[in-house]
Design a protein around this nucleic acid. Structure first.
Lengths: 184, 184
DNA sequence: CGGGTTCAGGAACGAGCGTTCTTGACTGAT
DNA sequence: ATCAGTCAAGAACGCTCGTTCCTGAACCCG
C-alpha cells in the first residue's frame, strides 16, 4: 500500500549525526539538512516530526552506536594505560565524540531531553573509566570516583583541542607515545 | 557637541560578555541584547557596528580582563600544584572560562577572527602552564610541551563538566583536596 | 540662546528560518 | 484496472532574525 520510501531512515539518521557533529544546531538549517541528506522536506517531517526530532534521533543513534561501543572497549581494557590508548587513538582517528561534545556545550543547557541523554552518557563514561581503574570500589555505586570524573573531563578536553585546530606541533603523537611508553 | 551617552561602553561590553558566556551566539538575539544591556538598538549599532562586532568586543574584553589575569596568576605560581589550585578554585568560583569555552566550540570554526583570538589565548594558556612546570625548556619556544597541552585541555574539560551539571557528588571538592594534599 | 550633534524610542525592512500545503507521479493490494 | 496511500517537488506561510530608518528630544559649544 503506497509508494515505498526511496531512502534509508537509519542512513539518514547517521548522516544527520555527522552533520550535527560539525556545526551548531542553529548553524544548520532545514535546507542544509534536506540538501545534504538527500531526503525531502516532506519525508523529513513525516518521519522525524521536526528538526529537533531529527536531532534527537541523530544524537541517540550517535550515543548508542558510536560512543557506547567505545566505552565498552575502554571498560574491557586490561589496564588504564590501554584504555586511554584505545580512547585516544579511536577518537583522533574519527571524531566520535564531537556530537556529544557539542550537545553538552550548546544543546543540553536549553533542551532537557538532550540534557538527560548526555548526563546518562557521562555516567556511563565515568563508569567505564572506573572499570579500567579497578580500585575495588563497587562499580554499581551511582557516584563516580573523582579520578574517573577528571579523566572523562580530560578526554573531552583533549577532543576539544584536537577538534579546534590542526595539531601543528604533533603534540598528540607525543602524548600518545608517553601514554604508551612513559619516559624516565 | 551632542548629547552625551547615557551608558558606559565598557560596562555594556562586560555585561555582553556575561550574556554570551551563558548561551550560544545564535541563541542570543539582538532583542535580548538591547533588553538586558539597557543600551538601545541605535546606539548598539553606532558603537559596535553589528551583533558580531559586539560579540568580538565582548570576547576580547573577556580574554584581556578575565582570562589573562588568571593566566598571569597561574604563571607566577611557585609550583604546579599551586597553579592548578589557583586555576581550579578561581574558575569554579566564577565562570571565567565559559565564554572562551563557547568561543572555541561554536564560533571559532565559523569566524576566523574569533579563531585567531582563541588560538592566541590557548598558546598563552600553554605557556603559563609550562611556566609553572618549569622544566627548563625555553618558554619563548612557540610549541608548548605535551604536558602543558594536555593540562590546558584537561582544565577546559573540567570546566565543561562543572558547567554542564550540578556537581552533585561534590567531586570537585574531592579533586581539590587531592590536588592540595594527595592521599597515600 | 541657537545650531549642530548625539541621543532614545520604535516602526519598518528584507532575508532566512522552521513548518505546512498543494500538486501530481508512483506503487501495491484488491 | 482501480483506487487508496505514500512518495517527490517545490511553492507558500507565519514568524523571527539582524539591520536600517524616521522622528523628536536632550545636550554641549560658540
Amino acid at each position: 500500500m503506497g509508494r515505498p520510501r526511496a531512502f534509508d531512515e537509519t542512513e539518514v539518521t547517521r548522516a544527520a549525526a555527522s552533520l550535527f557533529a560539525g556545526r551548531t544546531y542553529d548553524g544548520i538549517s532545514v535546507d542544509d539538512l534536506v540538501t545534504h541528506l538527500g531526503v525531502h522536506r516532506n519525508s523529513l517531517y513525516k518521519v522525524f516530526g521536526s528538526k529537533r526530532g531529527l536531532y534527537l534521533a541523530a544524537l541517540r543513534w550517535h550515543l548508542e552506536h558510536r560512543v557506547r561501543p567505545l566505552l565498552a572497549k575502554v571498560g574491557a581494557a586490561p589496564d588504564p594505560t590501554q584504555a586511554l590508548r584505545d580512547m585516544f587513538v579511536a577518537d583522533t582517528a574519527s571524531p566520535d565524540l564531537d556530537l556529544l561534545l557539542l550537545a553538552v556545550v550548546e544543546r543540553a543547557p536549553v533542551d532537557s531531553e538532550v540534557a538527560e541523554e548526555v548526563a546518562r552518557t557521562m555516567r556511563d563514561f565515568d563508569a567505564a573509566i572506573d572499570l579500567t581503574l579497578g580500585d575495588g570500589r563497587p562499580v554499581a555505586d551511582d557516584a563516580p570516583s573523582p579520578l574517573a570524573y577528571a579523566l572523562t573531563a580530560a578526554i573531552l578536553g583533549l577532543r576539544l583541542r584536537v577538534r579546534t585546530g590542526v595539531d601543528a606541533a604533533g603534540v598528540g603523537a607525543v602524548l600518545f607515545d608517553r601514554i604508551h611508553q612513559p619516559q624516565p
